[in-house]
């Protein structure tokens, strides 16, 4: 394709257009006001988030796969354990009801764990340099943008899983229960996204990142209470599972599914060492989230390209 090129570039009116009064007064105002502030932070965060949504809109296959995959899990795993005698899965009426919470959390976790990949590709491609040379209010905007995007996807996935579970006879948590489920998913997504982006900034390239994701993903699933209850596991695995953050996201969700009368002091998990209330799960997740964000701060600070 031929591209006819600028004579207009040589006109001097261009110089005037470039350096308009409006842009000059904006630059002066920048120097005067204390910058950056939280509005700058939201402006950059929303713009980055918007980019991710535009990408999704133009490449919807990720969305379709993201919704279909957990549903397949639900059906397949459900079928696999269908004939396990009732009562083995705690209070759950059937395995399907037991499994819903696990799949919700595992799906959100997987999405958040992969959040670093597109950023890694941006980094390898040089696109991330645009963010790194810009006067961002904070590089946490990169983290929050990814988290917002993944969280929205997770909400959709969660809604799909909840609906299918309900169709399969698992019922639904009550309204406040649903709110709690969403809150838990959000906290988990934010924390894990932060860790994933931390890895993205720390590791040399996408091969290494994929390797780490690969060796983290399934082991964390199997060493949590996503697929079987704690007292079903051998002792050593019980110990591992009671320190697995996923367990602290799964158990409250499972509990509110079964107990419309849940409260913060409800006992949701009995480990070999301690009993955990719903409030305590909330605290654990909050600490996990804040800890992840704090942990990656030095990585975000460094200069890199």
């Amino acid at each position: 394709m031929s591209t006819t090129l600028p004579t207009p570039l040589s006109n001097s009116a261009g110089a005037a257009a470039l350096n308009s009064a409006a842009i000059q007064s904006w630059k002066e105002s920048l120097a005067k006001t204390a910058r950056p502030d939280w509005r700058d932070f939201w402006q950059e965060t929303l713009a980055m988030t918007q980019r991710l949504f535009i990408q999704l809109q133009r490449r919807p296959s990720t969305l379709v796969a993201g919704v279909v995959q957990p549903l397949i899990w639900l059906v397949l795993f459900g079928a696999l354990f269908q004939n396990v005698p009732a009562g083995l899965f705690g209070e759950s009426r059937n395995y399907g009801q037991f499994l819903g919470a696990g799949i919700i959390v595992f799906t959100a976790f997987g999405g958040a764990l992969n959040a670093g990949l597109p950023v890694m590709f941006d980094r390898e491609f040089g696109f991330l340099n645009r963010f790194l040379v810009a006067p961002l209010a904070s590089r946490y905007s990169i983290v929050v943008a990814s988290a917002l995007f993944i969280a929205s996807l997770s909400l959709l996935q969660t809604a799909a899983i909840l609906s299918l579970s309900a169709l399969l006879g698992a019922g639904l948590p009550n309204f406040l229960g649903l709110v709690l489920v969403l809150a838990i998913v959000m906290a988990l997504v934010l924390g894990v996204t932060a860790l994933s982006l931390g890895l993205t900034f720390a590791l040399p390239g996408h091969i290494e990142l994929i390797a780490v994701i690969f060796v983290t993903n399934l082991p964390l699933l199997f060493s949590s209470t996503a697929l079987v209850p704690l007292d079903f596991m051998p002792h050593w695995l019980q110990i591992v599972a009671s320190f697995n953050p996923l367990t602290y996201a799964i158990e409250p969700i499972r509990y509110v599914y079964l107990h419309p009368d849940w409260s913060w002091s409800s006992l949701v998990l009995q480990t070999p060492f301690f009993n955990v209330s719903l409030a305590a799960c909330g605290v654990v997740l909050t600490i996990f989230c804040a800890g992840s964000l704090a942990l990656i701060q030095p990585l975000l600070r460094q200069r890199m390209a």
């Binding site: 842009i23 904006w26 910058r35 929303l46 713009a47 961002l136």
Partner: peptide, 12 residues
């Protein structure tokens, strides 16, 4: 996107 990274106000 680039404008937002430099915090240019919308109309500008």
């Amino acid at each position: 996107l680039q404008a937002a990274l430099y915090h240019l106000p919308g109309p500008l």
